[in-house]
Amino acid sequence: MLFLSQCINGLQLGSIYALVALGYSMVYGIIRLLNFAHGDVIMIGAYIALLTIGAGVNPALAVVLTILGCVFISVLIERVAYRPLRSAPRISLLITAIGISLLLQNLAQLLFSANTRPYPGAAIIPTKALRLGALSLSLSTIVTILVSVGAMTALHLLIQKTRIGKAMRAVSEDTGAAQLMGIDINKVISVTFAIGAALAGMGSVLFCCRYPIVNPNIGSMLGLKAFVAAVLGGIGSIPGAVVGGFAIGFAEVLVTALGFSAWTDAVVFVILIVVLLFKPAGLLGRGVAEKV
């Protein structure tokens, strides 16, 4: 029974990592950028929920505002910081992303102070436990898994079946050829950032319900782990991000269950190093998919 409940634990953590990793992978797939500001958008989302619920906004509405806020910031970052560098060397874009990440963290410190504050997780998902035989599951675990699986299914359908989803795949495979089809790549790139950020917004709420504290740095570790998940799965690959997210979640839970909880972060980075050394394309990556 302990084993089963640890599995479910891993599933919960893994689905959060998967939601965040999807944003990394989608953005990388479409403009070959490791968007290091992605994790910090999640932190901003946490403050949006914290402040709106603190101001008396209905928690469901606060969740919607969190998601919309993440979408708005991400699309704005792409428009203002990344788009002007579209034809610049890749390294300039990467440095800009790191700069934006630092900017968001410092901005949050300035606006909200560096103090750690409690997150109103219980207002969003009530702390209830459901008993299934001998198994006890918290409501937040169930909600996290269901919401994540639902969001990933919706994303899959969107990318495989809809006009915009097919355009996203076309742009990520060959941007120039996509333009020859009449695809407005600026619009497709904005939509990609928006979808990645909407998933990050959900990830923000679900992550903070699990670890209900907020400070300006909560996004960086979550972001880094999701980044490792994306690399493990094969950066740019959407199924890869999901597989990588669950793998990292399970690895962390396993390490904790074995009594090495102080080592979870280290293990994640050992995984990153091992992947980069032995299988840089990741589990489901398409070989070395560098574009010229």
């Binding site: 097919k166 795949r169 076309a170 495979e173 120039g176 020859l180």
Partner: peptide
């Protein structure tokens, strides 16, 4: 070079 979308 054709540039069809290989994964589509």
């Amino acid at each position: 070079g054709r540039r069809v979308f290989p994964g589509l």
